[in-house]
């Protein structure tokens, strides 16, 4: 089975792009499925179900979504293999810009939209910088000049990536993206694979349910802002 990770900031158009790509996969004769990772609530699984696409949903709730993703992704692949899928796509929202969901040897896609502003590419960390393919969406609502500036800013932070424009509404570019993704090599398991970069760390008293504010309640991996010499 081919496994592909697709991630990107919230509302960048991941689900629309995946739906269009799966349509193209279908034309090419592949059976695809999706695992949708989100934080609190998602109804996107219904969109996939409505199209008859096998879907599993995982909500991280109170945990770091990235850590939740990596702890469950192996089982997702097993699920896909059990269903005899040709292609499994994991969809996860990069809820903090330091998110690092990509895995070495697994085709990694980042979806980012033109409306997010030209400074956004540099604000996003490993999720964008280490992706193999960067999909830029919502090109139909901005000018050609903005599209070109935005794409060049993406290229600065990820010079190796293939950058492709996809319109999640009309599907323009989705067939081409599907053709790119088709080249992904199949895998049997994720066991032993490695993340492309370490995930953001979190291990402090607040992780464990502390709600009170104040120095004496803070334990573990805590970091302080630097206010210079003028404080106290």
């Amino acid at each position: 089975m081919k496994f592909i990770t697709i991630s990107g900031p919230p509302s960048s158009g991941k689900t629309s792009v995946i739906l269009k790509v799966i349509e193209s996969f279908k034309q090419k004769g592949y059976k695809s499925g999706v695992v949708k990772f989100d934080c609190l609530v998602t109804d996107d699984d219904k969109l996939y179900e409505a199209k008859g696409i096998p879907v599993k949903k995982g909500l991280s709730g109170g945990l770091c979504p990235d850590h939740f993703f990596v702890s469950n992704v192996e089982a997702c692949v097993e699920w896909g293999i059990d269903l005899n899928l040709d292609i499994l796509i994991s969809e996860s929202a990069g809820l903090c810009n330091r998110c690092s969901p990509h895995i070495k040897g697994i085709t990694a896609v980042c979806v980012i939209d033109n409306l997010s502003g030209v400074n956004t590419p540099k604000k996003i960390g490993p999720m964008l910088k280490f992706a193999d393919i960067v999909v830029i969406t919502k090109g139909d609502i901005v000018s050609q000049a903005e599209r070109e500036v935005f794409a060049s800013r993406v290229k600065i932070v990820n010079p190796k990536a293939t950058i492709i424009n996809v319109n999640g509404i009309t599907g323009q570019g989705a067939f081409e993206l599907a053709t790119l993704l088709e080249d992904t090599e199949g895998i049997d398991t994720l066991k032993g694979k490695q993340l492309r970069f370490s995930m953001p760390a979190a291990l402090c008293s607040y992780c464990l349910g502390e709600t009170r504010i104040g120095e004496s309640y803070q334990m573990g991996n805590v970091r302080k802002m630097d206010f210079g010499g003028d404080k106290g």
């Binding site: 502003g117 139909d140 609502i141 901005v142 000018s143 050609q144 794409a151 950058i163 492709i164």
Partner: peptide, 18 residues
């Protein structure tokens, strides 16, 4: 795949500046 060698520049009807 190259954003610098794109064949087509597109001027769409409902174009906005953000």
């Amino acid at each position: 795949f190259s954003i610098d060698h794109k064949l087509v520049a597109q001027l769409s009807q409902n174009m906005n500046f953000v």
